[in-house]
Amino acid sequence: MQIGINELKSTIDGALADSSRLMAEILVAGQEAHILPQATQRAVERIHACLTAGLEMRSLAIATHHDLRKIMGRTNLAEVGWGDLGDSPVASPDPMDEMGAH
């Protein structure tokens, strides 16, 4: 199975959404069952760590996609099959530069 950059970003987004829902479920279940927050704190912190790592992975995937689009724009090789066969906006500003991340 071949995966492109768009599929990678979609997979990451799905994992982030699932992690967010899981955190919400842990918190709500704890409240409904009258469980002390101390009992669920470690699980909540670990899910938070998963979300943090996932957000970093998402940022890197977005930056990678931007880099690949720059390469495709310079070489005009859409057939490399990186999953984005649309126009390569070489002149577009790098969204990661605007956020100050790299």
Rank of each mutant, 00 (worst) to 15 (best):
residue 52 T to P: 01
residue 10 S to D: 14
residue 7 E to S: 12
residue 40 T to A: 05
residue 29 A to C: 11
residue 49 A to M: 08
residue 14 G to F: 04
residue 41 Q to K: 09
residue 35 I to D: 04
residue 2 Q to V: 04
residue 81 G to V: 01
residue 13 D to T: 02
residue 87 D to L: 02
residue 85 L to R: 02
residue 57 M to N: 05
residue 65 H to W: 09
residue 98 E to C: 06
residue 67 D to C: 12
residue 63 A to P: 01
residue 58 R to C: 08
residue 72 M to L: 05
residue 63 A to L: 13
residue 21 R to A: 07
residue 86 G to V: 02
residue 95 P to W: 02
residue 101 A to R: 09
residue 91 A to H: 11
residue 4 G to C: 00
residue 54 G to C: 11
residue 35 I to K: 06
residue 82 W to R: 04
residue 89 P to Y: 01
residue 37 P to D: 03
residue 31 Q to M: 03
residue 16 L to Q: 12
residue 44 V to Y: 13
residue 89 P to T: 02
residue 68 L to F: 03
residue 81 G to W: 03
residue 100 G to S: 05
residue 84 D to Q: 08
residue 57 M to H: 03
residue 69 R to Q: 15
residue 5 I to Q: 02
residue 34 H to N: 15
residue 68 L to Q: 01
residue 81 G to K: 04
residue 52 T to Q: 12
residue 50 C to M: 13
residue 52 T to W: 06
residue 87 D to H: 09
residue 83 G to N: 01
residue 94 D to V: 02
residue 102 H to M: 10
residue 83 G to V: 00
residue 26 I to K: 03
residue 71 I to W: 11
residue 22 L to E: 14
residue 99 M to A: 04
residue 52 T to C: 09
residue 90 V to W: 02
residue 19 S to D: 07
residue 30 G to F: 03
residue 84 D to S: 04
residue 5 I to L: 08
residue 60 L to M: 06
residue 16 L to D: 14
residue 74 R to W: 03
residue 51 L to S: 06
residue 88 S to K: 10
residue 41 Q to T: 10
residue 36 L to D: 14
residue 27 L to N: 00
residue 32 E to F: 02
residue 87 D to T: 10
residue 33 A to Y: 01
residue 53 A to H: 07
residue 69 R to K: 14
residue 10 S to K: 14
residue 37 P to C: 00
residue 55 L to Y: 03
residue 14 G to C: 11
residue 67 D to V: 10
residue 3 I to V: 00
residue 79 E to L: 02
residue 63 A to W: 12
residue 72 M to Y: 08
residue 58 R to G: 09
residue 15 A to W: 07
residue 12 I to M: 00
residue 60 L to R: 08
residue 29 A to N: 14
residue 31 Q to N: 05
residue 38 Q to W: 02
residue 18 D to K: 07
residue 41 Q to V: 10
residue 62 I to V: 13
residue 43 A to W: 07
residue 82 W to G: 07
residue 63 A to H: 08
residue 83 G to M: 00
residue 23 M to Y: 09
residue 86 G to P: 04
residue 77 L to I: 14
residue 46 R to D: 03
residue 83 G to S: 01
residue 44 V to P: 03
residue 76 N to R: 08
residue 26 I to F: 15
residue 84 D to P: 09
residue 35 I to T: 10
residue 24 A to N: 08
residue 102 H to D: 11
residue 28 V to T: 10
residue 39 A to M: 14
residue 50 C to Q: 12
residue 102 H to R: 10
residue 4 G to S: 00
residue 51 L to I: 05
residue 1 M to P: 02
residue 34 H to I: 15
residue 16 L to P: 07
residue 24 A to C: 04
residue 36 L to C: 07
residue 91 A to T: 13
residue 54 G to N: 11
residue 96 M to E: 15
residue 8 L to F: 05
residue 40 T to W: 05
residue 96 M to F: 13
residue 100 G to D: 05
residue 63 A to D: 11
residue 23 M to F: 12
residue 96 M to K: 15
residue 26 I to L: 05
residue 100 G to W: 06
residue 50 C to P: 04
residue 36 L to N: 10
residue 38 Q to M: 09
